[in-house]
Amino acid sequence: MSAATLTPQAGRVTGHGVSFPRTLHSEWIKFTTLRSTWVLLATTVLVMVGIGLLGGWGIATGLDQMESAGQDPAAAGMDSSLLYLMTSGGLDFGQLIIGSLGVLLIASEYSTGMIRSTMTAVPSRLSPLFAKAFVVAVVAAVVGILSSFITYFLLQPILANYGREFGLDVDNLVQSMLLSGVYLAIVALMGLALGSLLRNSAGGIVTLVVLLLVLPIVAQIIPFDWVQDGVMPYLPSNAGRQMVMLETADGDLTQWQGGLVMAAWAAVLLAGAAVTTKARDV
């Protein structure tokens, strides 16, 4: 612990500089060295798989009961395609956890002061934001896809009891399962952007919940056509829901359109986060 153990080469300015891959590596270390990260990710998988399985089991039971009672499930708006959607049935809940993870990833740096270390190490400021975005988006996508496939494979033995198991060759099924990962990635990016804009965990999470859950409900009860046709479909979670559909109805957003609308929300929020990150004092 004496000063004599300092490296002797004073004024040495050699060695590697900052680069985006190095910033990415740093953000990856930061992401993986917090226990809360792992807790949230594990919870997301558990919740999504759990809800998917429960939903699938419930629907299969319902279909069975209707048929044995001599009713036509299709007349009640039910058919086996509902079962396919259960592979990503936990998305509504999973998005809240993953979105919160996105908020916390950056808001906790502001609340602890860590952001000053981050911005000192990488003073260009945008690199750490985009590196975080990259890390959290990729992880969210993997978690979403993983959850969908785990749900699918665990669901089949349950559905086999009802003779309703289905294969991965169902039209657009694999696409939907992959896109549920994209859905979570976009939600994570929205959370990250809100956390960066508000610099506050609670505020970021509340705003995200308003965007994803409250606005669609509010919009639903406003009886004007322009709200129903002009606002409702373009809210982030509604548009995102279209993206993971196996097939979309005429007049609704297609999978592509839904995905692009949802991505636009994240892009606008991230752009705002980038501008304020650059402009504001840390």
């Binding site: 190095r22 590596h25 740093s26 740096e109 602890t112 860590m114 270390s117």
Partner: peptide, 19 residues
């Protein structure tokens, strides 16, 4: 200027990784 839930070692490792 450190995340309170991270260890000192991991904090320094993350800082070091940028360079």
């Amino acid at each position: 200027a450190v995340h309170t839930s991270r260890s000192a070692y991991n904090h320094l490792r993350a800082m070091a990784a940028t360079h």
